[in-house]
Simulated assay, not measured.
Amino acid sequence: MAETTLVIAGRHYPVRCRDGEEAHLAHLASLIERKARLAQQNTPGLTEVRTLLFAALFLADELNDLKREAIGRQQQLALGDEDESAAQTIESLAARLEKLSDRLAAAADDA
């Protein structure tokens, strides 16, 4: 098990992790650190706990927005699939109508 130290809002946090995950944790900590700095800049005098609370809220808000965007894209893709299916059905019906029209024309010619 590896150990690394994360710096968030000016405070050092020793953390244990699986070997090789240190860089990933450092990256995550940098995301939290940016949000913590943003909270401190927008509201000077925040306690450490409130700074981390606001950082977590900022990150949760971004995550929520991304989830809504992903759901919207999935719905658009699903509608695209429905459109494709409808187009195939219409093409199939058009082909059947052409065959029927050809048969009726041939029958009229024979009569």
Rank of each mutant, 00 (worst) to 15 (best):
A29W: 00
E62I: 04
A105N: 12
L63G: 07
E69Q: 09
A23D: 12
Q41M: 06
E22H: 08
E84A: 13
L104A: 09
A87G: 11
I8L: 04
F54L: 01
L38E: 03
G72P: 02
E69N: 10
R73L: 14
A23F: 07
R103G: 03
C17Q: 01
L77W: 06
L31P: 03
C17I: 03
D110P: 00
N64M: 11
Q74G: 07
A39I: 00
G72C: 09
F58V: 00
E82W: 12
L66S: 14
Q88E: 13
L38H: 05
A39M: 00
D19V: 09
L79H: 15
L31Q: 08
L46H: 05
E21G: 07
D102C: 09
E82Y: 13
I32Q: 03
R37S: 01
K35F: 01
S30W: 08
A56W: 06
L66H: 13
L28D: 04
L31D: 07
Y13Q: 00
E22N: 02
A29L: 00
G45F: 04
E3Y: 11
G20I: 01
T5R: 13
A9D: 03
T51C: 07
E21C: 03
A23N: 08
L63D: 08
L38Q: 06
A39H: 01
D83M: 15
D65A: 15
V15N: 01
A106K: 05
H27C: 10
G80C: 10
E3W: 14
A23C: 10
V7Y: 04
E84S: 15
V15K: 02
A87W: 12
T47H: 08
G80W: 10
L38I: 00
S101T: 15
A87N: 12
L104S: 10
A70T: 09
A106S: 06
E3T: 11
L59F: 01
R103E: 06
H24R: 12
D65E: 13
D19H: 05
A87T: 15
Y13N: 00
S85N: 15
A106C: 01
Q88F: 10
L57V: 04
D19W: 05
A94H: 10
L28Y: 02
R73P: 05
G10M: 07
S85H: 15
L53N: 01
R34L: 11
L104Y: 07
E22P: 03
D83A: 15
K99H: 10
V7M: 06
M1E: 02
I32V: 11
Q75T: 11
D61K: 09
Q74L: 10
V49A: 12
L77N: 07
A111K: 08
G45R: 06
H27F: 11
E48H: 15
S101W: 13
A56D: 04
L100Q: 09
L38N: 02
T5V: 13
P44E: 02
V49E: 15
Q75Y: 09
L38V: 03
R73K: 08
E22R: 05
R18I: 06
I71G: 06
T51S: 07
A2P: 08
